[in-house]
Amino acid sequence: MGIQKRNPGFRVAAYGLARNDDNRRSDGNRSLFFFGAVCLLLFLLHSSSTHSDMHSDLTAIQSTLHPQFTPPAPGTYSLPPIDTITDHHLLDATGNPVALFDAAAGKIAIISFMYTSCAEVGGCPLAATVLQQIDQMLVKRPELARQVTLVSLSFDAERDSPQRMAVARHALAPRTDWHFLTTTDATALQSVLSDFDQPVAKLWNEDGSWSGLFRHVLKVYLVDTQHQIRNIYSTGLFSAQLVVNDIETILMESTKHSHSGKP
């Protein structure tokens, strides 16, 4: 029957309410957590064993990094537009203003909302790891890479300064067109989040102080050159090959006909 018994397992959306005794120190530790989590995920990514002796909680992350299915072939399915986004004024990792549409510049964009203090391994660190996988796949396919841009966009306007996004960029060492963007302030951030329908909320301690964490539903957006959202990925069905196949599906479609806006 293909049925195996396992221990009670992984919960996709686990949130913690950390104490907030020293903001600066805890921020630093959380940034390290993010990169540590990325390291962990990269370890899992390059681990060939599917019978990991690590805790079974990691199984779901493993299944994202090593999918148990073969994604449908490019062009064999359709991705009807879900919504259309507008342009937004952001900051790049050098601190220069940049418009989102200029960052995408006529390319298909993979836009991942994240924050560098994320303490949920199956959230932002997982998204960053999958984006890095995509980056590595694109390196091997320069023709395709020219038509794609990756965007990691922070929803932590307070702490994720351009400098911190530059650290993230350095740690992830992109080899293709991968932008690390943040917003100037909470107002600009709100505009972006509303446009993308990306729920983000601060998690509060019982004493009313901010835990330093956000509740967020992991969403990664596939946006075509006409600024239409064509797919939204979340934990469980977000593999690099799946995203690359979706990109190719859109590119194949645009070679056949200009898109009408209706499925």
Binding site: A14, G16, N29, L32, F33, F34, F35, G36, A37, C39, L40, F43, M54, H55, A119, E120, V121, P125
Partner: peptide
Amino acid sequence: ALGVAVAF
């Protein structure tokens, strides 16, 4: 941090 990640 990796250890913290696993613990989390």
